[in-house]
Structures are given as structure tokens and as C-alpha cells.
């Protein structure tokens, strides 16, 4: 029972953490130096307006009432945006901005898996060869390249292909035609209809799908760059560890063929340490989405958060940060669950 108890402890511990996050946000946003009235009306607001807004936002209520309202707003995803999408409800804003971010995140996880992992496995299978050095060197460089720099270089480079560049073709018209590297993918390639409350896809527009994929590829490569490097590195180490282990030798002694040893024994066991890496990617993706979405002008969660924070839109910024944090807490619990199921060693020492 040890490990399940450990898992339960982790889940229970996340409840006070959630409330502490809410309290922290309240303290920083409400009691911090940002003046909500000035953010709402601008610095030159007059007395009567200020009083009216203070009354409407409930700033004159006792602090504990404000805190309870703040917490319940966050937990129920209620409240209104002040500036960025003025007077729209938070759920509506979330519904608009989440799909592009999810689409970006999906590709940013998928691409590293299909580029970083094979590179790492390849390097691990040919250790200390020149191929290994090239692959590992690429990984090290990927890791050190800041997303914002990579994004601006890539965006500028792809935009420059319009007037002929080193690629020899124009990126915008190559394959599915897109107007610009910048902009939000439309994501209307799926036609949805619903039976009762459950939506299900009824049709798929392949052209639209290709367009949206092509549009999201450059930002997704940038966003996935750090994870790609991490996966390359871990894939290499994992293969190296497994290829020198006893059971591989046993399999060799039994006369199992080389290819089969690698696919059946080495790769499978090398995948275990990759679970935390892939879940950890969520951290990198959420932070990176702000930069990448801002640079490729994708109206997703990250860009909206950035806009709301620089324009003093406190409810929206607070709600978005809360959503991100909630997502991370859930992902952490999910990761613990995976560990509890897959790796029996977890928690026994506790």
C-alpha cells in the first residue's frame, strides 16, 4: 500500500497548495502596488468616476469579503476582463484563446518526440562517434538558444523567403497556401455537431488542416526546442545505460538478433525516464507560449496573459495564471499517478 498512500498524500497536499496560490494571487494583485481604478479608468480619472468604480468593483468592502469573492471567482472561472477584452466574461475569453494554444502545444510536444528522441537514440547507439558528437552538439545548442531569439530569427527568415531566399522557394506558397507566417490559425477544419451536450466531429477539411498545421509548425519548433534538447540528452543516456545492462547481454547470449534486442529491450526500458521529461514539458510550454505567441501574433492564452499583465487587466491576468497553475498541479498529480503505476520503486522509502 506504500506507494498508493504516498500518491494520496501528494493529492491531499495539492489542496492547500491550490489555496495558497489563490491567496498569493490575491495578495499580489489586490494588495500590491497596482491601482485597479487607475488600470480601469486611466490615471487622470476624476473623483466621482473613481468612487463609482470603487463601488462597482467592491473595493470598499472588508478585505475578507473581497478575498472570498476573489477566490470563488477564480474557482468558478467567473469574473470579467477589464481592458484587453473589455467587459467580456472570463469563460468566453478562455474559450476563444485556449484552442490556438492547445493546437500549438500539441505540435510542440509531438515534434520533439519525433525529432529529439530519434536523434538521442541514434547518438546512444553510436556512442563517441562523430555522428554522436553532431547529434549531441545540436542538442546542446538547442538547449542554450533562447526561444525569443530563435522565434524572431525564424520569423524573419521565413518572411524573407517571399522575395527569394536561400531556400529557393517561397514559404507562404510552398504546399498549402498561407498569407503570412504571423497570425492565429483558424482551426475551423473540423465541423462539429453535438448530440445533447457532447460535441463530436462530423467532418474534416483536409486543406484547412494542412494550412493550420503549416501555420503552427514554425512556432511549434521554436516552442519545442528546449524539450527537444532534453529528450535528445535523456534518450542518449537511457539507451547507453540499457545497452550495457546485464539483460541485454543475456539476450545476446541467447542468440536474440541485434535489431530485436534494440526494439524489444533497449528502447522499451529507455522510455521510462522519459515520462517526467514529457510531463515537465508543460512547464516549458506554458512559459514559452507567452513569447512565441507574442512573436507570431497568435491570439492564444499566452499572448492574452501578456497583454493583460501589461495593460493592468488584473482579473484576466489572475484567472489565466490560476488556470495555468491548476493545469500544472493536475499534470503533476497525473505524473505521480503514472509513476505509481509504472515504477514500483516510488514511495517505498517514504
Amino acid at each position: 500500500m506504500g506507494r498508493w498512500r504516498y500518491f494520496l498524500q501528494r493529492v491531499l497536499l495539492s489542496i492547500p497548495v491550490l489555496f495558497l496560490v489563490i491567496t498569493f494571487l490575491f495578495v499580489v494583485l489586490r494588495l500590491g502596488p497596482v491601482d485597479p481604478v487607475a488600470a480601469r479608468l486611466g490615471p487622470q480619472a476624476s473623483g466621482a468616476d473613481v468612487a463609482a468604480v470603487e463601488e462597482r468593483l467592491g473595493l470598499n468592502d472588508p478585505l475578507w469579503e473581497q478575498y472570498i469573492r476573489f477566490a470563488s471567482d477564480l474557482l468558478q472561472f467567473e469574473g470579467q476582463s477589464w481592458v484587453v477584452q473589455a467587459d467580456r466574461g472570463i469563460p468566453a475569453v478562455l474559450a476563444d484563446t485556449a484552442p490556438p494554444t492547445l493546437w500549438l502545444g500539441f505540435w510542440a510536444i509531438l515534434l520533439p518526440l519525433f525529432i529529439g528522441l530519434p536523434l538521442g537514440f541514434y547518438a546512444g547507439l553510436n556512442p563517441n562517434s562523430s555522428r554522436d558528437y553532431i547529434s549531441s552538439g545540436l542538442g546542446i545548442l538547442w538547449l542554450a538558444m533562447p526561444n525569443f531569439w530563435l522565434a524572431s530569427m525564424l520569423a524573419a527568415f521565413l518572411a524573407s523567403t517571399a522575395s527569394g531566399g536561400p531556400l529557393g522557394f517561397e514559404w507562404h506558397t510552398f504546399g498549402p497556401n498561407i498569407q503570412s507566417v504571423q497570425g492565429t490559425p483558424s482551426l475551423n477544419f473540423v465541423t462539429l455537431s453535438s448530440i445533447g451536450p457532447v460535441p463530436f466531429p462530423t467532418g474534416l477539411d483536409l486543406g484547412g488542416f494542412a494550412r493550420d498545421t503549416k501555420k503552427i509548425l514554425p512556432p511549434a519548433i521554436v516552442l519545442g526546442s528546449a524539450s527537444m534538447a532534453a529528450e535528445q540528452r535523456i534518450g542518449r543516456t537511457a539507451v547507453l545505460e540499457n545497452i550495457n545492462s546485464k539483460y541485454v547481454e543475456t539476450a545476446k547470449a541467447k542468440g536474440v538478433k541485434g535489431r530485436k534486442i534494440i526494439t524489444k529491450h533497449v528502447f522499451r526500458n529507455a522510455l521510462i525516464p522519459l515520462i517526467p521529461v514529457i510531463t515537465n514539458e508543460a512547464f516549458l510550454l506554458i512559459g514559452g507560449s507567452v513569447i512565441v505567441e507574442e512573436l507570431f501574433t497568435i491570439n492564444g492564452l499566452g499572448r492574452t496573459f501578456f497583454q493583460s499583465i501589461i495593460q493592468g487587466d488584473l482579473p484576466l491576468a489572475g484567472s489565466l495564471l490560476f488556470v495555468f497553475t491548476l493545469l500544472l498541479i493536475v499534470l503533476n498529480i497525473f505524473q505521480d499517478l503514472l509513476y505509481t503505476i509504472i515504477d514500483p520503486r516510488v514511495g517505498y522509502d517514504q
Partner: peptide, 8 residues
């Protein structure tokens, strides 16, 4: 990913 900069 020690130096990945938390997504910067």
C-alpha cells in the same frame, strides 16, 4: 533541462 530558462 537546467538552463532551458523556464520557457524564455
Amino acid at each position: 533541462a537546467a538552463a532551458a530558462g523556464g520557457g524564455g
